[in-house]
Nucleic acid binder design. Sequence first.
DNA 1: TATGAATGAGCCTTCATTCAT
DNA 2: TATGAATGAAGGCTCATTCAT
Lengths: 199, 199, 199, 199
Amino acid sequence: MTESSEPGAGPRRAKRVDAFRNEQKLLDAAASVFVEVGVDAPVRAVAAAAGVGVGTIYRHFPTRADLVVAVYRHQVDMLAAAGPSLLATSGSPDAAVRDWLDQFVDFLVTKHGLAAALQDDKVGAALHQHFVDHLVPVCAELLAAATKGSGGAGLTAYEVLRGVGNLCIGAGQDPMFDTRRVVRAYVSGVLIGEDVGRG
Amino acid sequence: MTESSEPGAGPRRAKRVDAFRNEQKLLDAAASVFVEVGVDAPVRAVAAAAGVGVGTIYRHFPTRADLVVAVYRHQVDMLAAAGPSLLATSGSPDAAVRDWLDQFVDFLVTKHGLAAALQDDKVGAALHQHFVDHLVPVCAELLAAATKGSGGAGLTAYEVLRGVGNLCIGAGQDPMFDTRRVVRAYVSGVLIGEDVGRG
Amino acid sequence: MTESSEPGAGPRRAKRVDAFRNEQKLLDAAASVFVEVGVDAPVRAVAAAAGVGVGTIYRHFPTRADLVVAVYRHQVDMLAAAGPSLLATSGSPDAAVRDWLDQFVDFLVTKHGLAAALQDDKVGAALHQHFVDHLVPVCAELLAAATKGSGGAGLTAYEVLRGVGNLCIGAGQDPMFDTRRVVRAYVSGVLIGEDVGRG
Amino acid sequence: MTESSEPGAGPRRAKRVDAFRNEQKLLDAAASVFVEVGVDAPVRAVAAAAGVGVGTIYRHFPTRADLVVAVYRHQVDMLAAAGPSLLATSGSPDAAVRDWLDQFVDFLVTKHGLAAALQDDKVGAALHQHFVDHLVPVCAELLAAATKGSGGAGLTAYEVLRGVGNLCIGAGQDPMFDTRRVVRAYVSGVLIGEDVGRG
DNA sequence: TATGAATGAGCCTTCATTCAT
DNA sequence: TATGAATGAAGGCTCATTCAT
């Protein structure tokens, strides 16, 4: 806004746009490398995949962890944004929950290194926070609508979400494990199961 | 006991026993190291904990992966053995399933690096096979008894098991995530949920 | 002042002045960064302190070494200029030597990375030459006046100077080492000591 | 002692001896590399010079700093041991001081990276302590004998020592700077100069 | 058979310098 | 002319694995 109101934004602006595009390129490259070789992929590998030097990666993401976080943050944000509208478009609150979690699974399955990343000490910490901040509230809202009255299993939105996340670890690497089916069963348990108690 | 009752056990046999004891020592040491510092623990750390040189570890387990596998194999076997009897002692087939999976969770939660280890390329591969070979049949048997008639969600025993396994990843590291409650909800979905379809 | 009195100073001249001011700004920034974080400070840090891009630094100083040299050259020049007058204002030639070397110490101690910088291959080389060219003659003149007749220890002006320089390395970082006292003892040895021979 | 009393010390002992020899080899290699390319020499360079892999260096010296310290510690110990006897063999206490400091200079000049090393944050710290612990007491003893009555310049043994150390920085790299002559002048100032005061 | 020293590939990160805009 | 993004060599360190003793 500030910038677009500036008339005749010259080379300065061009550079900004360029840098932004470049960062996007890095994120895309990183995402795809993470999918292929795992979140443990060396920074060098990401740099190579992006066709840049390692220095470039480090300019944009001061730390390996920052890079990983950025990769997923990007996608988490989109997912969070997609949540609320489902309450209107899906047939029922239950369906909204299932649909949204389906998208969550799609996301995780595609970038299947994510769940693993959450396990890492350094990387996991920051990523985790972003998850909690952005996804949990959305999940909570959908869940509240769906379990109004019935109650469901009584899991917290965080637990539901992380459960799905865990279920998706290694997804797509094992033809014997149909992530989506398993998640569907889990969600059933969450929504219609009797209360699982407090501990 | 078993061995000393065998007549004619000479020095040869003694050596065998000794080697067995030695390997046990290594496995115990490894198990405890894995619990404390994670499955990523350097081989050296295991050797140190066992009070032996790394060479000794490598004599018994040609590869780091072999060691890890052996550690968990040991414990998986015990779990498999514990399964069938539950069908008799637990009140119902459903309860048997829940009880056995509870033990599975206990096992995974206690040795909390395990689930993560299954994600590793080198280590996971071998471990996985042992899981499939030893635990899946047991799980299948219990499940068959429990879903006879009702059908449940229609997941394979393998999916059920791996689902629980995934749910246990990172257990105990996050106070907000009560692994056991989540698993309980999942099992509910598995047992009482409507069929989740084929894909 | 000097410049504005020159008739016919057009825009060309103005640009020159501007460039000069700019360079001054860079030097000041560099000097202060070097004092704070050491002569090892990254070029980027200097650029940031000066509020310019690294490119600007490199336009003015083709090499990191050139920058460092320039920073100290600036201050060395002032020291050289201050020398001759001391012969008149200080009470005696001996006192003049001591006073001037005191200033030298002040300079080195204040910009405490300098002495260390002289040790560096790339940076030290160029800096060294400037030292020899500008400070040694001054030192030699003062020394000649002071040792006329007595002879002193017979060190060369270069050796005296570099000796003081070395003594100042790490000054201020070690409360147990009072640089000024040590230098005073050294200068005593230089002025009143018996000839130390030729080697 | 403990070991030599053990009769028939077998391969165990041989290994120990071997390891010791090897460490000596590493230290020698490191010392020579440090002389040639400076204390900043990459660990890789030392490893190469010693004809071993970097891992070997790190096995013996967990940290780059440890290596550097070890290199000099070795030589400092010998110097410390050489001190007391000089009081008897040199003609006078003054001569003893000069002779010992001469040896100190010999040592520093030969391994001329030392003084520089003392400037380094990580490396310097540990090295410094060893200096203070082992050399300063020796120097103090000699100095006390030499300045008994006369008083000298009143520098502490630490200052005297570090002064000489500083004077030796870069020794041998500059034909115009005769380290030994300069040090001799300095020592003169220390021994016969008037008191330089307290600050 | 046990030991542990040695190996070396590979990792993350920093920073001087270049160059398109 | 100024900018700062990109580069990539280099460095310290870790750890699985081999092998002489």
